[in-house]
Write a protein that binds this DNA or RNA. Structure first.
Length: 328
DNA sequence: AAGCACATCAACCGCAGCCGC
DNA sequence: AGCGGCTGCGGTTGATGTGCT
């Protein structure tokens, strides 16, 4: 096997990250950004390869990470998106604010295992449902009851079925109706339900100097941190992160950071869809942000309750302990 | 209490694609 | 055009946690 090409240097540490390493990485990123990941380990004083640093940051340390159990709504979204795009975890993650592709992938794999194990019991003749909310999920039928998800496949496993209909790729909300759950949220936040998912999804899911459309991003975003100040008086980090108790001095600088993608993004994907709808959404988002006094770009804190946020890991203890498994 | 099986999740690996030279 | 460096992605592994017997 051997190490990755970027890790050929002497004594590159592997395995779980220690709290000290995390602190070094956070401290470096918050003060310098990460123009070139290959330079990060050296400059941050880490015996890690750049790839490992990037992974650690993206999957664990970045401030907008959302941890804890997936809510039923997130599960629905994952299922819907997976039925459309297949195992494109990064794409799916781009629609789930604060969730990482790794997390979704892990979730799906473990979930699929359960499905496979339970498969004989889950097959029901409900695939003829006329419920319009399910009509675009062509080969599967999803039942939701007591947070138990049931997928009934028509002779094909979701995990192996190829993506369908690229034109529906970015319209997950056309596949099911989130309104019963989200109405309250929309009312509360003066935002339409669709926006609630759509906008933050494109806002948060990639690190500051990155974007979802990796095919064209490198030259545009590397070697600089796109920074815009948010007139924020409160922390921009999910409380569920527990960062308030972990590294308060280190995250101070980050509160006012938001990528140009977060401001401009409209899920411009490599498939190149969006344009007018995107621009409209951007404008709506800007207006909404202004109307909200820009207190926060992370909606999830606000919607935590209605969306089943009680299922999220309790802020401090759980998150902290899981943040540093090596310290346990 | 001990041992085992299973579940979860952080991290690694290899590859693809892009860019600059 | 070819090469090397870099990033991002998806598949996979391995350590740890948890529940059951």
């Amino acid at each position: 096997m051997g190490h990755h090409s970027c890790c050929n240097q002497q004594k590159v540490k592997r395995g779980l990250w220690s709290p000290e390493e995390d602190e070094k990485l956070i401290r470096y990123i918050t003060t310098h950004g990460y123009g070139c990941w290959s330079e990060v380990p050296e400059k941050a004083g880490l015996q890690r390869c750049g790839k490992s640093c990037r992974l650690r940051w993206i999957n664990y340390l970045r401030p907008d990470i959302r941890r804890g159990r997936f809510t039923p709504e997130e599960e629905k979204l994952i299922i819907s998106l997976h039925s459309v795009v297949g195992n494109r975890w990064a794409h799916i993650a781009s629609h789930l604010p604060g969730r990482t592709d790794n997390e979704i992938k892990n979730y799906w794999n473990s979930w699929i295992k359960k499905k496979i194990n339970r498969k004989p019991a889950t097959v029901t003749p409900t695939s003829t449902s006329t419920n319009p909310s399910n009509t675009t999920i062509e080969h599967s039928q999803i039942n939701y009851a007591s947070n138990q998800l049931e997928i009934v496949n028509n002779n094909q496993d979701l995990s192996t079925r190829p993506p369908v209909h690229q034109e529906t790729l970015f319209s997950p909300f056309f596949m099911f109706d989130p309104s019963p759950v989200l109405d309250g949220i929309a009312d509360h936040n003066n935002v339409r339900a669709g926006e609630l998912f759509h906008e933050p999804a494109s806002l948060n899911t990639e690190p500051w100097s990155s974007s979802n459309h990796h095919h064209h991003q490198h030259a545009h975003h590397h070697h600089q941190i796109q920074v815009q100040a948010i007139p924020s008086s409160t922390t921009a980090f999910p409380t569920s992160m527990g960062t308030n108790t972990y590294l308060p001095p280190l995250i101070e600088n980050m509160e006012n950071l938001v990528s140009i993608d977060q401001v401009q993004s409209c899920s411009i994907d490599d498939e190149g869809e969006m344009a007018l709808e995107c621009l409209q959404r951007q404008q709506e988002l800007n207006e909404w942000v202004e109307s909200q006094n820009c207190s926060n770009f992370l909606f999830w804190d606000n919607v935590e309750g209605p969306l089943g946020g009680e299922e999220l890991a309790p802020a401090s203890s759980n998150t902290l302990s899981s943040s540093f498994p090596s310290s346990l």
